[in-house]
Structure formats: structure tokens, C-alpha cells
Simulated scan of single mutants.
Amino acid sequence: MSSSDIFIGETIGTAVLILLGGGVCAAVTLKASKARGAGWLAIAFGWGFAVLTAVYTSAPLSGAHLNPAVTLALAIKDHDYGTLPVYWGGQLLGAMIGATLVWVAYMGQFRAHVTDREIVGGPGAQDTVKAVEAEEAAAGPVLGIFSTGPEIRNAVQNLLTEIIGTIVLVLAILTQGLNNEGNGLGPVGALITALVVVAIGLSLGGPTGYAINPARDLGPRIVHALLPLPNKGGSDWSYAWVPVVGPLIGGAIAAGIYNVAFA
């Protein structure tokens, strides 16, 4: 496949992934959304179906990596690093496009949410903010729609959680989900991977929100920082390295395990 096919496929596929995955987070979170309060099950299955849709959409063009950790693992497995920048560039751009489309689709709900005094605080709200750790206070009321964040802020634990979750994801892809060319997910592999993402969300998503994908977290976090929303709060850049570094380490470890145990 050509570099242009890879870039276009990864851009479109990752945009679909974030549109539907971020969309379920918006649906569950935002004021005036019909799905508000639907809970963690809705989020876990929503992300699983987002993966399924994105893979089927982009696989004919790029093999549907949709995740820099997956691309890195496949590069290590095959000792071929030439297309890494093309895949990663398309994935980051697609993630930013998908996050922007979530904002467009829920524009009225975002506006209602960030102007609601019960949500962003009225008089005396500063006293509440002062009682919260500075890093946690930096995360605004809609940041969780765009990117992940820890329930307990401990860099070592948070990093390990992301590494473990990504190892599970990438090992499942490498052992079950590759197409005949070995460069991406086949039709059955897409379904398996979607179910694995649901399983990771239900079992390992509680501590950090299971980014398990650097582009999925970094692209939407950049969009959150750029959006013209009042009272949106900070983008929590002090934590942003964890969902980027953790999945990349996890992907590399998974590739190493595969090469030793399965290849």
C-alpha cells in the first residue's frame, strides 16, 4: 500500500474512532444529552463499537492500525520502521478531526454544560477549587470527553496500568487479528479486537480511563486546549505524558513477547 493510502486510511479511521468513542463520552457526560448518566458500561461498549466501525472503514486503505502503539508493535515484529511517521501522522490528525466533530455534534450540550453553575460552580466555587490538588483542579468539567485522567494520581501506578492494558490489546491483535498480509486487522480480527477493547475497559479501565492509544489521548487533548469554550478548565498537561508513553512501552513489550513466544 502507498504512503498516501496509509495516511488517508489512518486519518479517516482514527477520526471515526474518536468521533464515536468521544461521542459516547459526551453522550454520557453532558447536560441536556439524552444518554446522560448511562454509565461505564455504555462507555466501554461504545468504545468497542467505535473500534469495530473504524477498523472496517479504514482497513482497505491502511490495514487499520489506528493506534501508534499498534503501529510500533508491528514495526518491531517485522523489523520495518519505514512507515511509522506516515501512520503516526495520520493517526494524530484523525484523532484531532474526530474530537472536533464530537464538539460540533454536541455544540449546544457543551455550551449548556460549561455555563451551568451547578457544574462549573457559582459563588464560593473558588473555595472548593482550593481544596483540590492543583493538578486535579486543572482538569476541567469536559476534559474527560476528550482525554483520559486518573482516579488516583500516582504516576508509577498510572503508567503501569496503561502499559498492562496496552500489552493485552496488542498481544490480542498480534496473535488473533492480523489479515493475510500481516499488516493490519482482518474482518474477524476487527471483531475480536473490538471485544478485547470492551474487556479492557470493563476490567482495567477504572484507574486511568484506559487510553491504550497515544493518538486517542493526545489529539483530543490538543483540541480541548484549542476549543473556544468558556469555563472549560485546563487540559491537564502534567498528566498527558502517561497515556502517550505508557501505551508505546506496552506496545513494544507486547511485540517482544510475541517475537519470543509466538513467532
Results as ranks from 00 to 15, higher is better:
31 K>V: 14
31 K>Q: 09
21 G>Y: 04
71 T>I: 11
77 K>M: 13
15 A>D: 06
40 W>E: 10
115 T>Y: 02
36 R>M: 13
21 G>K: 00
28 V>H: 06
62 S>F: 15
34 K>D: 12
111 R>H: 15
69 A>G: 01
59 A>S: 11
47 W>Q: 03
52 L>M: 07
120 V>D: 09
23 G>R: 03
104 V>W: 08
46 G>N: 13
41 L>M: 13
80 D>V: 08
105 A>S: 12
113 H>R: 12
88 W>H: 08
68 P>W: 10
121 G>V: 02
79 H>C: 12
24 V>S: 02
24 V>Q: 02
24 V>A: 05
70 V>I: 08
62 S>I: 11
114 V>T: 12
119 I>G: 11
117 R>Q: 15
28 V>Y: 00
58 S>N: 05
36 R>P: 15
63 G>E: 05
38 A>F: 15
96 M>C: 02
38 A>N: 14
92 L>E: 06
114 V>F: 03
114 V>G: 11
94 G>N: 02
82 G>P: 07
75 A>E: 04
84 L>S: 04
74 L>A: 04
59 A>D: 07
98 G>T: 04
77 K>V: 14
92 L>W: 13
99 A>W: 15
43 I>C: 14
109 Q>A: 06
78 D>C: 09
61 L>S: 02
53 T>G: 06
32 A>L: 14
15 A>H: 07
65 H>I: 13
16 V>F: 06
122 G>F: 14
105 A>E: 07
